[in-house]
C-alpha cells in the first residue's frame, strides 16, 4: 500500500506544529522521518495513521491491504504501551480478540509473533518482569500479529539503553529482511535512519516542513559491508549538515514560544 500525505498542516491551539506537508510512503519501502526535537514528527505520524485529525490537508491510502491484514495501519510506540495486567501473550492477544478468528488461527498468530520476536519462553510473563528491550519486543510482536499493511514506529528504540537498542535494531532489520514491509520510522538518531530507511525525510524545526527527502540507494542488507561505509558516512554527514542548524535553534526555543 502507498500512502500520500497531501498539504497537511496542524495547529495545537495557537501553536503551529506542521506546515503544508506533502509526503509519499511507497509500498514495500521504509521511510525514515528525522528532524529536531519538537518539530512535529510524532504529530505527523499520528496524522498519517489516522490517530490525529489534521487542521488542514488529508492523508490518502492507495491500494488494498493484504487479505490477512487485521489492522492495516499499526503503531509501535516509544513507551511500548503494554497493558501491565496482561501477560506477554495476553498483550499480543489484545490486538486479535475483537476480530473474528477461530481459536486455532488466533493461537497460531500469537505463537508466530512470539517466536519471531524471541519471546516464546516469556509468553506468561508480566510486563513488569521484563527488561525494556523485551517490552518493546512485545510491542513489536503485537504489531506483527495483525499483519499490518503499513507500520508506524515512533522512536521505538529511544527508551532503551545503547546496547539493547543495537540488539533490537538488528532484530528489526532481520524481520524486515525476511518480509517486505512498508513502514514509517520516526527517529532522532541519524544512524538508525541511515541503517533502516529506503528514503529519509528531513523536517525543519517547528513548524515542521519537509526540508528534503533523501534516498538511500544501498540495499539494506548490504549496509553493514565495509565497501559501503564511506558512502553511508557521507550520507550521515549530509543529514547532519541539514539538521544541525535547525537542531541548535530548536534547542534554544522556549517550549511555549
Amino acid at each position: 500500500m502507498d500512502l500520500f500525505v497531501q498539504g497537511v498542516s496542524h495547529h495545537y491551539g495557537d501553536l503551529q506544529a506542521l506546515d503544508a506537508i506533502d509526503l509519499q510512503v511507497k509500498g514495500g519501502q521504509i521511510l525514515a522521518l528525522i528532524g529536531p526535537s519538537g518539530c512535529g514528527k510524532s504529530t505527523l505520524l499520528g496524522i498519517m495513521g489516522g490517530m490525529l485529525q489534521p487542521t488542514e490537508g488529508d492523508v490518502v491510502a492507495a491500494g488494498v491491504p493484504p487479505a490477512d491484514s487485521l489492522n492495516p495501519f499499526t503503531y509501535i510506540f516509544q513507551d511500548f504501551a503494554l497493558l501491565p495486567w496482561r501477560s506477554v501473550a495476553g498483550n499480543v492477544a489484545l490486538a486479535l480478540e475483537h476480530h473474528r478468528l477461530d481459536r486455532a488461527e488466533r493461537t497460531a498468530r500469537i505463537e508466530a509473533a512470539l517466536v519471531l520476536t524471541g519471546l516464546r519462553d516469556f509468553a506468561a510473563a508480566l510486563p513488569r518482569q521484563l527488561s525494556g528491550g523485551m517490552r518493546q519486543r512485545v510491542g513489536i510482536a503485537r504489531a506483527v500479529a495483525v499483519r499490518p499493511a503499513i507500520l508506524f514506529l515512533d522512536e521505538p528504540l529511544s527508551a532503551l539503553d545503547a546496547q539493547t537498542r543495537e540488539l533490537l535494531l538488528e532484530d528489526l532489520l532481520a524481520i524486515w529482511q525476511r518480509e517486505a514491509t512498508t513502514a514509517v520510522y520516526v527517529t532522532h538518531n541519524l544512524d538508525e535512519a541511515v541503517r533502516v530507511a529506503d528514503r529519509i525525510a528531513v523536517l525543519s524545526r517547528r513548524p515542521g516542513r519537509i526540508k528534503q527527502v533523501m534516498p538511500v540507494e544501498i540495499p539494506r542488507s548490504e549496509r553493514g559491508d565495509a565497501r559501503h561505509a564511506a558512502d553511508l558516512a557521507a550520507l550521515h554527514a549530509q543529514l547532519w549538515d541539514l539538521i544541525r542548524g535547525e537542531a541548535a535553534v530548536a534547542d534554544r526555543e522556549l517550549a511555549d514560544g
Binding site: 495513521g49 490517530m51 495501519f73 510506540f77 504501551a81 489484545l94 480478540e97 475483537h98 503485537r142 495483525v146
Partner: peptide
Amino acid sequence: RSLIRMAQSFNLPNPAIVWKV
C-alpha cells in the same frame, strides 16, 4: 491515555476499550 490510544490504534471497539483497558 497512551494505553487508550494504543487500543484505538488497534481498532478495539469502544466497549472493549472500557472493559479491557
